[in-house]
Design a protein around this nucleic acid. Structure first.
Lengths: 263, 263
DNA sequence: CGTACTATTGAGCGCTCTCAAAACCAGTGG
DNA sequence: CCACTGGTTTTGAGAGCGCTCAATAGTACG
């Protein structure tokens, strides 16, 4: 009830909201919310976009979307589930580059060389949409706002990586895990999922690898956070019980406490 | 003489090279080589691109291209000199995000929010070209190959940041400085400048901040590299005397020696 | 030629990694 | 149902890399 009330209220604020909502729903159906959500695409444009999208049957844990070195053909949008991207090395080691949740796009780094420089592996049963890039590009030539949206999307990816760069460069192990958990929280919330209660589809090993920490350190931190009543952790299930404290922990060490000021 | 010979030889290999060369020269004049170099833009397109570019008078050490929070209006291309970008914090601390050499573009991360999230400060006397983004976007709608090039450019930026992410996440202080020096070397070489002999326009402080290291560590590493005959360093001038050894140092620790293998 | 800043060098400490082992969990077959 | 096995997670003890603090040397600039 409360939900209906607030949504009808917000719809009354602006005319735009109504058509926007329609697009949002259309996009959700075609799993392209990430591409068209923040944008004034017309329903017709959305439909055209929809025609080039390929939906695949559900993938399972361990399946690959693509391997490092593969020719770049498509962007992939996560519909449900989760995917990790990683740079494999000849000897079997690997560097985890990211975890991708519903609504997020994979493959943006491959456009330049026309080949994937990382691999993408499914972490749990996952639904994916495939967007053939050449067809997308043709489309974006005829739809200026789609082009603009694509620029924004790529720019956003850059800004996000910059954030991550900052994280790995300066922050303590504690800050890294807190930031990681808050990042998951915020991203899940954006998709209407619980920001405090979620399932970690990746192993401690993968978290550590991603954050530049040893497995043991990650494990110890989970234990400590639990003791400090910041969260309840059981196996792969996490419930954040004190978001404010986590935020404070991250905010408290922006740059000055970890690195001396520049002249 | 040797230079003439090799360039005329390469021109004979493919017809494309000739027009390509013409474009390259045209681009060098308008400082847009980064934007149009790797691409089949027609001379007419280059000219159209040229009309929207604004050249500014030389900037001097300490000048700002933009401040964090400024409205995003233009991309900036470094013609000569160098620029650092950094995220300032209220208390006066800052996080160096990158150093930008001739031919490189600044501001790609600001497209999404339509505002700059970092500041850009000139490190030495520097010539800059300004590309108003809205006009560029209009142009890229009418020139599909320009759009493609922009996608590639943004994608490249993402891939580069991923590399950096890998560096900060796992590698030792030694690897970080070696990677940093090699990165400068390669980027200078791409612009036809000496890959072994160059001037560090940034302070040790800024290098350390960028690489996630303390100033003292950076200083000690320079001393050690000097002792190990990897380079000759005098104040801000560096000459890399053993590129192979530096490359080997970085290659030797791709991922496996710094972090345990994933299962 | 002093002043302020930047860079170097040294000593000690803390965070996080490494090594090692135990606890726990999931799946398999007796 | 339970022992067995491979994998993941947790916990403990010790070591090393890089940070911090502190002092000195070198450089730019008025």
């Amino acid at each position: 009830m409360a939900g209906m009330k607030s949504s009808s209220l917000s719809a009354m604020h602006e005319n735009k909201v109504i058509s926007f909502e329609a697009i949002r729903i259309a996009c959700r159906n075609c799993n392209l919310s990430t591409l068209c959500l923040p944008l004034g695409l017309t329903p017709e444009d959305v439909e055209r976009l929809d025609t080039i999208v390929r939906r695949s049957r559900p993938l399972h844990r361990g399946d690959y979307l693509f391997h490092s070195g593969d020719r770049f053909r498509s962007l992939f949008v996560v519909k449900t589930g989760s995917v990790k991207t990683f740079a494999p090395s000849p000897e079997g080691g690997e560097q985890v580059l990211g975890f991708h949740l519903p609504g997020e796009i994979i493959g943006l780094d491959a456009i330049e060389h026309d080949a994937h420089s990382c691999s993408a592996k499914v972490l749990e049963t996952t639904a994916i949409c495939e967007v053939p890039f050449s067809r997308f590009e043709e489309l974006s030539v005829t739809i200026p706002s789609l082009q603009h949206q694509m620029y924004r999307l790529l720019s956003k990816e850059i800004a996000q990586e910059t954030e991550m760069l900052l994280l790995l460069g300066k922050k303590s192990a504690e800050d890294r895990l807190a930031t990681f958990l808050l990042s998951l929280s915020h991203r899940l919330q954006k998709r209407g999922l619980s920001p405090t209660d979620f399932y970690l589809s990746m192993s401690r090993h993968e978290i550590g690898n991603y954050l530049g920490l040893a497995v043991e350190t990650v494990s110890r931190l989970f234990t400590r956070f639990h003791e400090e009543r910041l969260l309840v952790v059981d196996r792969k299930h996490v419930r954040l019980t004190d978001l404010d404290a986590l935020e404070a922990m991250v905010q408290a060490t922006p740059l000055e406490d970890c690195r001396r000021r520049l002249p």
